[in-house]
Nucleic acid binder design. Sequence first.
DNA 1: CTGTATCCGGGCCGATACTG
DNA 2: CAGTATCGGCCCGGATACAG
Lengths: 148, 148
Amino acid sequence: MTTRITAVEKSAAKEAYDAFLASCPSRQLFSTLTDKWLLLVLNALAGGARRYSELNRLMAGVSPKMLTQTLRSMERNGIVTRTVEPTVPVTVTYEATDLGRSLFSVAEQFKAWAETNFDAVSAAREHYDSAKLRHSARPTRSPSPGRP
Amino acid sequence: MTTRITAVEKSAAKEAYDAFLASCPSRQLFSTLTDKWLLLVLNALAGGARRYSELNRLMAGVSPKMLTQTLRSMERNGIVTRTVEPTVPVTVTYEATDLGRSLFSVAEQFKAWAETNFDAVSAAREHYDSAKLRHSARPTRSPSPGRP
DNA sequence: CTGTATCCGGGCCGATACTG
DNA sequence: CAGTATCGGCCCGGATACAG
């Protein structure tokens, strides 16, 4: 008469969340995390606290709307803190929380991977595209660049 | 005609890519990598090669359109291979390439983080939301003087 | 089984103008 | 400096229906 735990009870007690399941709340969080702006901000904050304008400069091409929106979301999720110093004009500083810092590693790996493997991916793309061209453009084998 | 290396040439030779820059091609790759479906597929393939229908089952809630679209993109980028066995009906198997396998680690960390830290994020959200409520609903704080 | 094609609504996101 | 507000286009992405 030892423990009699059903499969259902077990999964509810131990596995809890599974991002594979669309119905699982962690899936939504998973979606939120897979945001390029969020990951970029995390990479920027890995170097220490930053001011709004610094982030704006670092992440070239981000609009104020997206930057603010991203930062607000991160603040709400407990990933960054927002500190306002009552100077004139005001100075706002963003810094990662402990929770946010626990994401630094993966965020940096992401960015590093993209930068170091770009050439390999680029080569794969060309290979794939040229193969597709040969396959679709059946006629004589003249590499005519078909541009839709 | 001695070597005259400009700053541009130098950065192109050494630092090469910087995903922070909107103009950098690695930034685009960074964006495509931060896709929830891609990361989910990677998590699924970390357990070995999978068939189309298996992926469809594992990733509950994905539409055939998104699944195919994601797999095509990954194939083009050299992250997965697509193998067709001429059985009846056809059997299609997807498997990660070496390049794709080098992403397993980060993909799994991502999923794991979302699942293990959901509770913490959830708590942070409630704290943030309640704080905002107190701040915005400033009428009279407490059942007292609603001075006209 | 493994997709492809099409429709179409929602929201993402950039651009711009304005405020404290 | 650090945002907020608003508009509008574009693309994401689900729901079919259908083909090889």
